[in-house]
């Protein structure tokens, strides 16, 4: 057991979508545990109710495992953080219920964390980035943001579906099934590696915003024609969407002149996207940072760490006011722990 009597640990619960995860962080920013349990649908996309059922079934086990990994006792927890939004209602509520129960039982404060802020903060913690332009890409979000005047401002985002969603649906329609440890994005990446021929797809950048739904429709149409190799289709899909993401990130970088580019979120694990962003970072004399794999997907560690930052600035929430916020936008969140540079 570490430091028996000091209550300077934060337990974070993440449950916005298909993952239920618990992380434990020290107040200094050391991640002691990050246990993730993924709900894998039988077929189709995430069913919110089924995902929530999965979360409530595994909650106890995941929390216990996190304490085991961290080698601390519940009595040493000084604050509980949970992802308060944005996300799927039933999933968020399950995580929030677990968080409220533990906080009440241990009689410690509760902190509601914005999921998007957490993805940025864990990326900054892990890579030591100080003031980056962030590209946050996942199954639910596609955001280009940078800090200005107290908040993470959104410079560009998707006008319709998230880029991860676009890739997931394509892979699913192509007949692939995701497995634990092999998400759709990884399947597409592997296939794309063997692609040789570029098939033109709609390239849709509008100012700093992007649109992926028309592109997905076009890609699915080509898929159903059955005239192209699946490898070439994945290759073309990846090249097109990643070029769009990179172009918008580069515009934000040129506009803000920030010293770093941070890639975070589930799609950050993609090597091709990493190399594209690396290229624009070098072009603009910025340092390229990518979130480590274990913190790329939704995870409790990022909630725990962001919880520490918020707690240190007194941003706790009473249990009776800790309702979830399904549509909580990134730029609505005050982040007093970030200093203007």
């Amino acid at each position: 057991m570490r430091h028996e009597n000091v209550k300077n640990y934060c337990l974070g619960i993440e449950s916005t979508a298909d993952d239920f995860s618990v992380g434990i962080a020290t107040f200094e920013g050391e991640i002691l545990a990050n246990v993730i349990s993924a709900y894998v649908p039988e077929a189709g996309g995430i069913h919110p109710r089924e995902a929530a059922q999965h979360h409530s079934q595994v909650a106890e086990k995941v929390v216990a495992e996190a304490f085991e990994k961290a080698e601390i006792s519940p009595k040493q927890i000084g604050v509980i953080a949970f992802s308060q939004g944005p996300g799927l209602g039933p999933c968020l509520r399950t995580g929030a219920t677990v968080a409220r129960a533990i906080a009440t039982y241990l009689n410690v404060p509760l902190v509601g964390v914005n999921h998007c802020v957490a993805h940025i903060e864990i990326g900054k913690l892990a890579t030591q980035a100080r003031d980056p332009v962030t590209l946050y890409v996942s199954g639910g979000n596609t955001i280009v943001s940078a800090f200005d005047a107290g908040r993470y401002r959104v410079f560009g985002e998707t006008l319709d579906i998230a880029v991860g969603n676009c890739l997931d649906v394509f892979a699913r329609e192509a007949g692939y099934r995701q497995k634990e440890g092999m998400p759709f994005g990884a399947i597409i990446e592997k296939l794309a590696d063997k692609g040789r021929r570029y098939i033109p797809l709609p390239y849709s950048v509008k100012g700093m915003d992007m649109s992926f739904s028309g592109l997905l429709t076009a890609a699915l149409k080509l898929l159903r024609q059955g005239k192209h190799r699946i490898e070439d289709l994945c290759y073309s899909l990846q090249e097109t969407v990643f070029s769009m993401l990179t172009e918008v990130t580069e515009r934000a970088l040129a506009h803000t002149e920030k010293p770093e580019v941070l890639l975070t979120g589930g799609v950050a694990a993609n090597k091709r996207l990493q190399s594209m962003l690396q290229s624009i970072a070098e072009e603009h004399g910025a340092r390229f940072c990518v979130v480590p794999k274990q913190y790329a997907l939704d995870n409790g560690a990022m909630i725990a760490w962001t919880g520490v930052l918020a707690y240190k600035h007194g941003l706790t929430v009473p249990v009776e006011k800790s309702f979830v916020r399904l549509k909580w936008r990134l730029e609505e969140v005050e982040v007093p722990w970030v200093q203007q540079t």
Binding site: Y203, E239, T240, S243, T246, E247, S279, I280
Partner: peptide, 13 residues
Amino acid sequence: SKKYRLSELDKQI
């Protein structure tokens, strides 16, 4: 010309 883009796509854009 953007190094990150595929040359076909780059030329097209």
